[in-house]
Simulated scan of single mutants.
Amino acid sequence: MVARSMFHAEQQHIEKLIIEFANKTKEQLSKAVDCLYKADVAKAKQVIDQDKQLDALDHQINDEAIVLIARQQPVARDLRRLVVALRISTDLERMADNAKNIAKATVHLGSNPRVKPHSAIREMKEIAIEMIDLAMKAYEYEDITLARRLASLDDMIDQFYGTIMKELLEEKATDPEEIQHVMQMAFSGRYVERIGDHATNIGEDVMYLVKGESLDLNE
């Protein structure tokens, strides 16, 4: 009985770390996009440096989950919860990497970019943050109804990204530097779009946790 209580306490600690990870990932995304619009290279470099903290958190979650699996050898639902924790941590780490990449794009663009950020990138960012919040609520409450809502939000991000790409491809850039700046803006939109995909993955992980089978929310 004591061992069982200790197992659940350690499991809950891992889940709290995941919620913390998600909140820090949202902060990174907000800061990165803010840097992009303000052409704030100094702040962008801070975002890049802060990514190391998120990598460390990912390693901590992985280490604790793997040790708990090895020591307690859980089965059925308990095992699924730990497997899902590992999957979610991986998706959050990749989201954080995409936020870091937006900051890197800001550094490449410099303090006086030749191309202004497309307004849709900010709208995509807001949806992505909503998706992370929704994914974490679905995870915390094991709510598949919330998880399913992620698919429609991901579609919205995809539509915005399509608009960005269409308009950027219509840019009449001929100067090599300007072309590079157009590409960095396109990349930035793509990074936010990828964050939406990873949030959808978390929704699918919740479906697996609850139902015990892998499902594609985009089908």
Rank of each mutant, 00 (worst) to 15 (best):
residue 33 V to S: 07
residue 56 A to Y: 11
residue 49 D to P: 00
residue 118 H to K: 06
residue 102 I to Q: 13
residue 130 E to L: 09
residue 130 E to K: 06
residue 58 D to G: 08
residue 145 T to H: 13
residue 84 V to G: 01
residue 64 E to S: 15
residue 19 I to N: 04
residue 25 T to A: 06
residue 154 D to H: 12
residue 99 A to M: 01
residue 88 I to A: 12
residue 22 A to K: 03
residue 54 L to A: 09
residue 75 V to N: 06
residue 122 R to S: 15
residue 100 K to L: 08
residue 53 Q to L: 07
residue 100 K to Y: 01
residue 64 E to A: 13
residue 58 D to V: 00
residue 59 H to M: 14
residue 77 R to I: 12
residue 145 T to F: 00
residue 153 L to Y: 07
residue 99 A to C: 12
residue 61 I to K: 07
residue 158 D to P: 07
residue 120 A to R: 11
residue 148 R to A: 15
residue 88 I to M: 14
residue 128 A to Y: 07
residue 20 E to A: 14
residue 57 L to E: 09
residue 112 N to C: 08
residue 86 L to H: 09
residue 137 K to S: 15
residue 84 V to R: 03
residue 60 Q to M: 12
residue 31 K to M: 06
residue 68 L to D: 03
residue 136 M to Q: 07
residue 154 D to W: 02
residue 80 R to T: 02
residue 112 N to M: 11
residue 67 V to Q: 15
residue 156 M to N: 10
residue 145 T to Y: 00
residue 93 E to M: 10
residue 63 D to A: 14
residue 66 I to R: 14
residue 123 E to I: 10
residue 153 L to K: 14
residue 57 L to T: 14
residue 134 L to N: 09
residue 101 N to V: 05
residue 106 T to H: 06
residue 41 V to M: 01
residue 155 D to V: 11
residue 38 K to P: 04
residue 163 T to F: 05
residue 132 I to Q: 10
residue 156 M to F: 01
residue 129 I to N: 07
residue 28 Q to Y: 01
residue 29 L to F: 11
residue 38 K to C: 03
residue 26 K to Y: 02
residue 76 A to D: 02
residue 116 K to V: 08
residue 143 D to H: 04
residue 63 D to L: 11
residue 126 E to V: 05
residue 86 L to S: 13
residue 118 H to A: 10
residue 105 A to D: 14
residue 28 Q to W: 06
residue 126 E to M: 04
